[in-house]
Design a binder for these strands. Structure first.
Lengths: 138, 138
DNA sequence: CTATGTGCAAATCTTTTGCAGGCTA
DNA sequence: TAGCCTGCAAAAGATTTGCACATAG
C-alpha cells in the first residue's frame, strides 16, 4: 500500500466514522485503493486478502462489509439469492449480471434511460430503483 | 377447488410436462387458481397450503417451485438475499419491493418506460431486464 | 410395471452472533 | 482506560439432497 493509498483509505474510513484498524485498511484498500469501482462478495474479497498476504478472518470480512454499508460507504446489490454483492459505487446505476459466471459489472448509465416511473404508493417513497440487465451466453 | 379451476390447473401443469399429483394441483391452484398474479416465497406458499388444509411438505414446496420454474411456468425474482420469490406472471415487468414488510408486488408496467438499453457485450445476450423499485416508509 | 414424485431428516451453504482477548482514541 | 474490533467456533436460516415409499401413465 502506497502512502497516497493510505491517506485516501484512511479518510474514506473517517468519513464513515470507522476506526482505521489493520483489517479495515486492508479491505478498504482492496475496495477503493486504486480508484476503480469494485463489485465483490464476502467470499471474493476474503480470497483477495488471502492472495495478497493479508490475514483477515472471514467473519470480519462479513462484519466489515456490513459496517461499510451501514456507514454509507458502499452499497449492497441483490442479484443472486445465493450470495450478497457489494458495490463501491454509491450512485444509483444499472448493472450487468453475467448469469453463467456470477459476475456483476456496471452497465453504461447513460445508455439506460428510464423515461417515466410510477408514483410511490401512498405513505411510501422510492428508496432506490434497481436495474439489472441479466446476460446469458448468446 | 371447482372443476373449472381443476381443468385450468391441470392444463397449466400439462403445458410444463408435469404430472398432476395431488401436491402439485394444490400448489398450482393456490398460485393460479383464480387467475390473479401471485408473488410467493416457499415459506409463504407452504403457510397457505397449511391454512387451507392441504398437506404438502416444505421440501416438496421448494422442489415444486423449482420444477415450475424449470418448466417455464413461473419466474424467480431476486430482491432479497434472505429468501427467493416466485412470480406467476411470465412477462418481463417491473416490481415494487416493500422493504419494511418484505412484500413484492407488480408495478404498473406502462408507467415504467425504458427508452434505451445498452447493447449486450460481445458473445452475450440479454436474458431479462429486472427493474425493482424499492419502497421505504415515507 | 417403470419412471416420477413425495416426505422426512440430514446435509449444505451463506451469513450472523457470543464471547474472550486485542487495539484505537 | 473505555469502548470499539477481531477471531474463532457455534448458531441460525434458507434451501437442497439421499433414500425409501407412493403414485401417475
Amino acid at each position: 500500500m502506497t502512502t497516497a493509498q493510505h491517506s485516501l483509505v484512511t479518510s474514506w474510513l473517517a468519513r464513515g466514522n470507522l476506526r482505521p484498524t489493520r483489517q479495515r485498511l486492508a479491505l478498504a484498500t482492496l475496495l477503493i485503493g486504486d480508484g476503480e469501482n469494485r463489485h465483490v462478495t464476502a467470499e471474493s474479497l476474503y480470497a483477495q486478502t488471502a492472495a495478497c498476504g493479508e490475514k483477515v478472518s472471514l467473519a470480519t470480512v462479513y462484519n466489515t462489509l456490513r459496517a461499510f454499508c451501514a456507514a454509507g460507504l458502499i452499497n449492497e446489490i441483490v442479484v443472486d439469492g445465493a450470495r450478497n454483492y457489494f458495490d463501491t459505487r454509491m450512485d444509483d446505476h444499472p448493472h450487468f449480471y453475467w448469469e453463467d459466471s456470477h459476475a456483476l459489472t456496471d452497465a453504461p448509465a447513460d445508455e439506460v434511460v428510464i423515461t417515466s416511473l410510477p408514483a410511490a404508493p401512498a405513505g411510501m417513497q422510492v428508496a432506490r430503483v434497481d436495474v439489472v440487465i441479466r446476460l446469458k451466453r448468446a
